[in-house]
């Protein structure tokens, strides 16, 4: 079944590299850990947003990805966010677990929910829109495609950012797509899957 929607744009962050569509936007050449990569990317993208430094890595990845995705464009007001991953907020959960033995930090605890990244992106880009965070053991193109299409079909959203945002054991993998009526690539489960796999080779 075809729909009138397109994958207008996508962003990929993994292995110390940021891709905007198929174009490599930024990379840290020498091997470095996540914290440094996030900071270098923040500088490279010229984001001036002090709150960034307070976030956990999952939210930082989300903010970086959204920055790339929304660069130089007017974001439709009702741009829904439909994200997914397998680890939820597990890395920050582990941190909170350690702090529980000593002194709990509210600034850590607040990030022990996967949907906080939706909140951070909504605040940064002023999106008072539909949000949903799904958990699946691996990238589930069918679920994301179906749900995004429903939001657009029922006018619950004018555009959707959907995808995968994972942070697990120092590994990270972000793939977010902007779905709207603009663009060349048809929005389908197959195309979503292919774009996700493509960069994964």
């Amino acid at each position: 079944m075809s729909n009138p929607y397109k994958i207008s744009n996508f962003v990929r962050i993994r292995d110390q590299r940021i891709f905007h569509g198929e174009k490599k936007l930024f990379s840290c050449e020498e091997a470095t850990h996540l914290k440094r990569f996030l900071k270098e990317s923040y500088k490279f993208l010229n984001i001036s947003y002090p709150k960034f430094h307070k976030m956990d890595a999952l939210c930082k990845l989300g903010i970086l990805a959204a920055e790339v995705l929304f660069k130089n464009m007017e974001i439709p007001t009702d741009t829904a966010l439909v994200f997914s991953n397998s680890a939820s907020s597990l890395e920050t959960d582990k941190k909170h677990k350690i702090l529980m033995e000593a002194t709990v930090s509210p600034a850590v605890f607040v990030y022990t929910l996967p949907n906080i990244v939706l909140g951070e992106i909504s605040i940064k880009h002023k999106l008072q829109s539909e949000n949903a965070f799904f958990i699946s053991d691996k990238f589930n193109a069918g679920l994301l495609a179906d749900y995004s299409e429903i939001l657009l079909d029922t006018s619950k959203a004018d555009a959707v950012v959907c995808g995968w945002i994972e942070w697990k054991n120092a590994e990270y993998d972000v793939f977010l797509c902007l779905i709207s009526k603009e663009g060349e690539v048809s929005f389908s489960e197959e195309n979503l899957e292919e774009l996700y796999r493509f960069e994964n080779e």
Partner: peptide
């Protein structure tokens, strides 16, 4: 669905959306 304290109700909304489609 893991969307903080709205999760349970959002699950119900999601069910409606999928069933309607």
């Amino acid at each position: 669905v893991s969307n903080a304290c709205v999760s349970g109700g959002l699950g119900l909304a999601i069910a409606k959306r999928f069933i309607m489609a």
